[in-house]
Amino acid sequence: MLSVTLLKKLQKFSIDVSFDIKKEIVILFGPSGSGKTSILNNVAGITSPDKGSIRLNNRMLFHEKEKPVPIQKRNIGYLFQNYALFPHMTVGKNITYAMKDEALVNQLVSTVGLEHLLTSYPHQISGGEKQRVALVRALATKPEALLLDEPFSSLDDKTRIQCQNELLRLHELWKIPVIMVTHDYEEAEKLGDRIVKLENGKIV
Rank of each mutant, 00 (worst) to 15 (best):
K197E: 10
N57S: 15
L139R: 01
S48E: 13
I54H: 11
D184S: 12
I203R: 00
I76E: 15
S153G: 08
E115S: 03
S48T: 13
K9Y: 13
T111I: 08
R74Q: 10
L135F: 13
L28A: 12
I203V: 13
D20V: 05
P68F: 08
L104C: 05
I203G: 00
I25K: 03
D184R: 10
R169K: 10
V26G: 00
I95Y: 02
G113D: 11
G45L: 14
Y121E: 02
H116S: 08
P143K: 08
E144Y: 06
D50R: 00
P70S: 07
N41G: 03
N82D: 15
N200W: 01
R137N: 07
V136T: 11
D193W: 12
V133H: 10
K130L: 07
K130M: 09
L114W: 13
T119P: 00
L147C: 04
A145F: 14
V26Y: 05
S120K: 11
I179Y: 06
F86R: 06
I95H: 01
F62C: 08
L28N: 05
E187I: 04
F13W: 10
E129Q: 15
E187Y: 07
K23P: 01
P177S: 07
L146A: 01
F152I: 04
H123M: 03
S53M: 12
G192H: 08
E186W: 09
I179A: 08
L173C: 05
S48G: 02
F13Q: 13
I179S: 06
L10M: 04
G77A: 07
L118Q: 08
Q81E: 15
R132L: 12
P70I: 09
K9H: 15
E64L: 08
K73A: 09
E199N: 11
L104A: 06
F19H: 11
Q11L: 09
T182Y: 09
K100P: 00
I54N: 07
T182G: 08
N57V: 04
D157F: 01
V181W: 12
L56E: 15
V109G: 05
I161Y: 05
T159F: 11
Y185T: 00
I46F: 12
D157G: 04
I161C: 03
M60D: 04
L40H: 03
I71S: 06
F29Q: 10
A98F: 08
T47G: 01
I95P: 00
F62G: 09
E189P: 02
P177I: 01
A140N: 02
L170P: 14
N82W: 08
S53I: 10
K51T: 14
F62S: 06
S18N: 08
F19K: 04
K190V: 03
D156M: 02
H116G: 05
Y97W: 10
N106P: 09
E115T: 05
L108I: 04
T90F: 14
Q11E: 15
I176N: 06
E144Q: 03
K197S: 06
F152W: 09
V17G: 14
N75W: 00
G128S: 07
E24K: 00
S154L: 11
D20E: 14
T119F: 06
I46L: 15
